[in-house]
């Protein structure tokens, strides 16, 4: 069972109060992009054993989307942060580096 801290309403929300939103920090491949880039955007997803970044929505609570960084092996949550960013905040990355040295995920490490 995951418990994620909602950065908007400050509630430690149980997983059953949240809706999963899939992989975080996807960048849309817009009109005019080559087929392979569009395919990557549409279908290719990270499926790591370890550090992972996801989107979640506090569906039964304040209704806001936010990001979460967690470990898929131990379910350890490294932190949550607001949705209005295109990459994980430095503070979260530093915390992950402290616990999982040498981690990488997509373009981030």
């Amino acid at each position: 069972m995951l418990i994620l801290h909602c950065p908007y309403c400050g509630v430690d929300a149980d997983e059953t109060e949240l809706s999963p939103g899939g992989e975080a920090h996807l960048k849309r491949a817009g009109p005019g992009t080559p087929d392979d880039a569009f395919e990557r955007y549409l279908f290719h997803r990270e499926n790591p054993k370890g550090v992972h970044f996801e989107r979640w929505r506090h569906a039964s609570g304040c209704g806001k989307w936010f990001h979460a960084a967690r470990c898929t092996v131990t379910m350890e949550v490294f932190g949550t942060y607001p949705a209005q960013v295109t990459e994980p905040p430095q503070e979260i990355c530093d915390r992950i580096t402290g616990k999982r040295p040498g981690w990488s995920w997509g373009a981030f490490s």
Binding site: D12, A13, D14, T16, E17, G61, C62
Partner: peptide, 17 residues
């Protein structure tokens, strides 16, 4: 699933869940 213990929820608090 909200924490309903007296320490977790008290008069004056509001919880959407």
């Amino acid at each position: 699933p909200a924490d309903m213990s007296p320490a977790g929820f008290a008069p004056g608090r509001f919880r959407r869940t």
